[in-house]
């Protein structure tokens, strides 16, 4: 599909007819989806994409993720950029180079076309930045009240060198934990954007591709494992590591970057930033010998807040946070959404 130079959007809002398989749907796909996402591999007329496999590839990685964020647009991103970053990042932290995405879009009747247009523009921008292409897609229109405006599902395909062995099973006692930036920015920014609490703040989601980080780290020997701390936050990833390795993860509170506005919102509403989502950070486990080099590499790339935040110790499978005062507290598995405080 060649990019159209001129387009006119006939409708201002999505109607059920945009999912009817006929002209309305063709217009929706051509004037919005293909307009933004077109590339030489995306053929909206065919039923399946034919994809070249890079020479020398022996391992293909695949992942899928659904996106239901509310509100659809928030400071620092929207559901379009998020749907690319989320899937690209899952491939990236697995050590892969992401190549292709599919996009399944569930759109609610009544959605403003202008919103969809902005979302797809961000999606296209995010694809360009990560050098991935949307190669297949599907759209459905849901009845009014049956969807949150837009739901996206993206499936990603990437390739990885078989020499690179990453995983929870690679982690050893004595390894250290490296975090690429501040925690909880995305969770807090979305929370505030919902305006549920009557608060406002100068806070942006950290939603971004982590490829520059993972590509830098995979070049360093001694890398064991990477994960992006999304839902459930840093504490949840640390907990997964503790359970999988059967050892204690010790984190140092003073080393974990938390932005002041994130801390302020958490203090006010009773949230713990250790459990709030990031969408552009990496937690890496790496051998102690390589940790300093990895940290310096990230600093050199501009990730100024990257920090060594803890280590794996032999002991009971749990996460201990050494607090600023030299006290300790256990970070337990997240149970439910925290409630707003009342006084």
């Amino acid at each position: 599909m060649t990019k159209q130079t001129k387009r006119q959007l006939t409708d201002s809002h999505i109607a059920l007819a945009h999912g009817n398989g006929g002209r309305y749907m063709r217009e929706l796909i051509e004037k919005l989806f293909a307009y933004h996402l077109s590339n030489e591999l995306l053929d909206t007329q065919s039923d399946a994409a034919c994809l070249p496999v890079p020479s020398g590839t022996s391992e293909i990685l695949m992942t899928t993720d659904g996106f239901t964020v509310e509100p659809l647009e928030f400071p620092g991103g929207n559901i379009g950029s998020l749907a690319v970053h989320g899937t690209v990042n899952d491939l990236a932290v697995s050590g892969a180079t992401p190549l292709y995405l599919t996009l399944s879009a569930m759109i609610e009747e009544g959605l403003e076309v202008a919103v969809l247009d902005r979302v797809l523009e961000s999606m296209a921008q995010a694809c360009r930045e990560s050098n991935v292409r949307v190669v297949a897609g599907d759209t459905k229109v849901l009845r009014r009240g049956q969807g949150g405006g837009i739901y996206f599902t993206t499936t990603g395909i990437g390739v990885k060198s078989p020499q690179l062995c990453l995983g929870l099973d690679q982690i050893q006692v004595g390894d250290v934990l490296l975090l690429s930036g501040s925690v909880g920015d995305h969770g807090t920014a979305v929370l505030l954007a919902r305006e549920q609490f009557g608060l406002s703040g100068d806070l942006h989601s950290d939603s971004a591709s982590v490829l520059p980080i993972t590509q830098a780290l995979t070049a360093i020997s001694g890398l064991r494992f990477m994960r992006d701390p999304t839902r459930g936050g840093l504490a949840t990833v640390a907990h997964e590591i503790a359970v999988a390795t059967g050892n204690t993860v010790r984190l140092h509170e003073t080393q974990i970057p938390v932005l002041d506005p994130v801390r302020a919102v958490c203090d006010m509403l009773g949230y713990d930033p250790m459990y709030l989502a990031s969408e552009g950070r990496v937690l890496a486990v790496i051998s102690p010998e390589s940790a300093q080099a990895a940290l310096e590499r990230l600093h050199a790339l501009g990730y100024a807040e990257a920090s060594i935040i803890g280590s794996i110790e032999s002991g009971v499978a749990r996460v201990i946070l050494a607090t600023e005062l030299g006290g300790e507290r256990i970070l337990a598995e997240l149970e439910d959404d925290p409630l707003p405080r009342i006084c």
Partner: peptide
């Protein structure tokens, strides 16, 4: 165990468990 101001919920959130 319900309120964020409640001692039980705070202790639970701080990871304190009987069995450990």
């Amino acid at each position: 165990m319900v309120s964020d101001e409640g001692a039980c919920r705070i202790w639970w959130a701080a990871g304190l468990r009987k069995e450990q």
